[in-house]
Simulated scan of single mutants.
Amino acid sequence: MARKFFVGGNFKMNPGSLEAKKAIVNVLNKADVDPNTEVVISPPALYLIPLVDFLRKDFSVSAQNCHEKLSGAFTGEISPTQLADAGVPWVILGHSERRTLFGENEKGEVRSIVAAKTKAALDAGLKVILCVGEKEEQREAGKTDEVVRSQLEPVFEVLKGDDAAWSKIVIAYEPVWAIGTGKVASPKDAQETHAATRKFLAERVSPAVAESTRIIYGGSVSAKNCKELSTQPDIDGFLVGGASLKPEFVDIINSKRA
């Protein structure tokens, strides 16, 4: 089954004004991009609604987080139903910067919250970019696959019996040591982790879900390294941080174009 190439741009808390953001999006709106690539842009929450209207219609918008409850006394949070109501179709969940912020530990409290958020987002009609990835010391200890599995396991549990839900999930493998550092996993290393993750999906859900689920790579992706990474059979796209704020993001979107 052919998996449509997927490129997400995570603006994080950048840039500092709506006008600066519009300047970045203007470049994307005017760009000649590969129609066979799905593109999703994720600005800070304050700019989601303006971007829904301003961004070209063949691209989509994503939130960077949501709460696991649909409503309630949760100051400063956004519910998945509110995102859906605002016309925001995607949400990024489990990004390592948020896992670290809330002190993920071996007992897995944060992992269970990410799983609950994933279930709530899907129930609200959103699609999810689900982030997983290991720290540098975990990779050096040979625990990459173990860490990725431990982060996915709570999601398997909350979605048990609902194979169709995986059609609305894109898994983003983002090694923590490569995010914003300039380091990048080699195409061989990234491919090995993606293939192992797909094998785990086949074991825990089904071979059909494993074959159809997109697994994308994130971590210092640039115009220089995207071409070689995109040739790997189990790398189905990218989640891009800093480079999504630059004109080279168009080159990354077009990395699979012949």
Rank of each mutant, 00 (worst) to 15 (best):
A2C: 11
F6I: 10
G9E: 00
N14L: 10
P15E: 09
S17N: 06
L18V: 12
A20F: 01
V27K: 15
A31M: 15
V33P: 08
N36G: 15
N36S: 13
V39K: 02
I49D: 12
R56F: 02
R56S: 12
D58L: 00
S60L: 10
N65Q: 04
H67I: 01
H67G: 06
K69D: 15
S71E: 09
A73E: 03
F74S: 06
T75D: 07
G76T: 06
P80G: 12
L83P: 11
L83V: 06
H95T: 07
L101G: 13
G103H: 11
E104L: 02
E104N: 03
E104Q: 08
V110M: 15
S112V: 08
A115L: 03
A115N: 09
A115H: 09
K117I: 06
A120M: 00
K127E: 06
V128S: 09
V128E: 08
L130V: 08
L130T: 05
G133M: 07
E134H: 07
E136T: 03
Q138F: 06
G142L: 11
K143F: 07
T144I: 14
T144D: 14
D145H: 10
R149G: 14
V155L: 10
E157V: 11
D162H: 14
W166M: 08
I171P: 12
A172G: 00
P175S: 10
I179Y: 03
G180R: 03
G182H: 04
S186F: 02
H194C: 15
A196W: 07
A202G: 15
R204W: 04
A210T: 00
I216E: 03
G219C: 09
E228I: 09
T231M: 13
D234Y: 04
D234T: 02
I235W: 05
D236P: 02
D236Y: 03
V240H: 05
L245V: 10
K246C: 11
I253T: 02
I253L: 00
